[in-house]
Amino acid sequence: MQIKSDLKLVTKTSDKLLGELSALNLDDSILFEIKLALEEALINAIIHGNKRKEDLPVSIGLSVKDGSIEITVEDTGCGFDYRKIPNPILDENMMKMGGRGVFLIKRLMDKVNYNDPGNRITMVKHISNKK
């Protein structure tokens, strides 16, 4: 699916995608983690990737296979160097306002990859034995 780069669509989009997972009867805590990772990825794509230019699309993919959920979020921006994100849990970064989105995604999901140049994130959550 594709959405416009409108932050008001973030919750609606995650509600829709999580709705597609309802048949899996996942535990609330797993759904919370997937929702948060997905919304953080959408927000990053809209704000940092597409620079809030509403007409630019964000593409979202969702698949369930082999006991895992895989979600991709792709913007049309020129990407970023995901290896250079400051660690938000270091003392010198604790009081900073931003920088926690990607950190949370990496902590909440089991596998996270970016393409090069960094405008598409792929997030995997293992769901076997987590129902």
């Binding site: 919370f32 948060l36 919304e39 953080e40 927000i43 306002m97 931003g98 926690r100 949370l104």
Partner: peptide
């Protein structure tokens, strides 16, 4: 019921 990184910020 939910908080994201902007909420924490």
């Amino acid at each position: 019921t939910y908080i994201d990184s902007s909420g924490l910020a």
